[in-house]
Design a protein around this nucleic acid. Structure first.
Lengths: 197, 197
DNA sequence: ATTTATTTGTAACGACCATTACAAAATACC
DNA sequence: GGTATTTTGTAATGGTCGTTACAAATAAAT
């Protein structure tokens, strides 16, 4: 039994695993960006034909939405684990920046953050989906800062999110782990200065 | 005499001014990015037809090259004026970051840096042209730092260029002047610390 | 006035895009 | 076995992309 039907469904069985397809698509989107990946690229990589693709995912943006969902559960930076109440806010944010540097440089074939790069694509639906995810992460960061430094929360959130956007851009343009890490640590120095205590 | 011929040339006179066309194209590219601007968009904006466009500029990438050339002479950040030998390196770099924030937010319709955003397009030729321009600017910054802080030149150049990439991305995603300026000033704060003296 | 050179407008080119019509194939249910 | 249901492969859809062939139009040079 190599291929299994979706339980309780009649008809011809599908010859590919949608979850594996999402993982494959995630690699493509991460490596080349949403705009530069065509539906033909995806169907070729999966060894399927367009009708199978559209039956499973509805549209290219629909697949991207599922990629984003899968990504939050697997490769997203675990903010809740890093921004802990038992470490100084500046230390937590610095750790987050360093973790971002590590992840953005981890796959030389990819480069940068899937979500941050997705916020720059030309498709309205895909862009807003990535944007929403990013806004949620920024809100989490802002709340974390505001709990102990309410007066600095907005400005410091802007600073760290700007730095992460820059790190993602530089990762995509070829900066390797040591360079990204050094940049993240310099940025981290701002935080100890802006958030005393 | 409304339209003048290029001096010394025979034939039908062209009905548009190439320099004005470059300025119009610059606005389009800056506002929407290279990929999102089609040749049809440009010819429509100029009121000309494709053959006139290709006779004047050769290709879409050729027009972009001329836009970049025009940009360096007009709207590019005047690094040589800001990174002066008579101010502390940290102060010069901080002023550069603030100037970047101002320029990236100056045109709400546009957003971000024409060159930095150009380094992210999907056309190979256009991307490499923007990249080359950006690499030149980074080399200038690196030389400026290295003259007085050779040991920190590479890392600090990476930091400021990463910050500028982040500022450009955030400008494009809606951050206004006060937010960008506050971020630039936070980033500038680390320079005095990293470059003592 | 004829020739030569250049730009014009019209109308296409082939390539690629995301997406789908349609009928044959393959399974589960009765 | 017959039927309902779902996915398959083939082949297209209309649209947009950057780019160009071609001939009429318009100017300068002879």
């Amino acid at each position: 039994m190599v291929v299994t039907n979706k339980s309780g469904s009649r008809g011809r069985p599908r010859r590919f695993d949608p979850d594996a397809a999402v993982a494959t698509a995630q690699k493509l989107f991460h490596a080349r960006g949403y705009d530069a990946v065509s539906v033909a690229d995806v169907t070729d990589a999966l060894g399927i034909n367009p009708p199978s693709f559209y039956a499973a995912f509805g549209s290219k943006a629909g697949l991207y939405q599922r990629v984003l969902d899968h990504w939050t559960g697997t490769e997203a930076i675990p903010l809740a684990d890093i921004l802990r109440p038992d470490v100084a806010v500046a230390d937590g944010l610095a750790a987050m920046l360093e973790e971002a540097a590590r992840r953005y440089a981890s796959d030389p074939a990819a480069g940068g953050c899937l979500v941050l790069e997705g916020t720059r694509c030309t498709d309205d639906g895909a862009r807003e989906a990535a944007r929403a995810l990013n806004l949620g992460a920024e809100a989490f960061i802002r709340d974390y800062i505001a709990a102990r430094h309410p007066g600095e929360a907005d400005a410091v959130t802007d600073f760290v999110s700007t730095t992460m956007s820059g790190l993602s851009a530089k990762a995509r343009s070829g900066h390797d782990l040591p360079r990204l890490l050094a940049t993240a640590r310099l940025a981290g120095g701002v935080l100890a200065q802006a958030l005393p205590g």
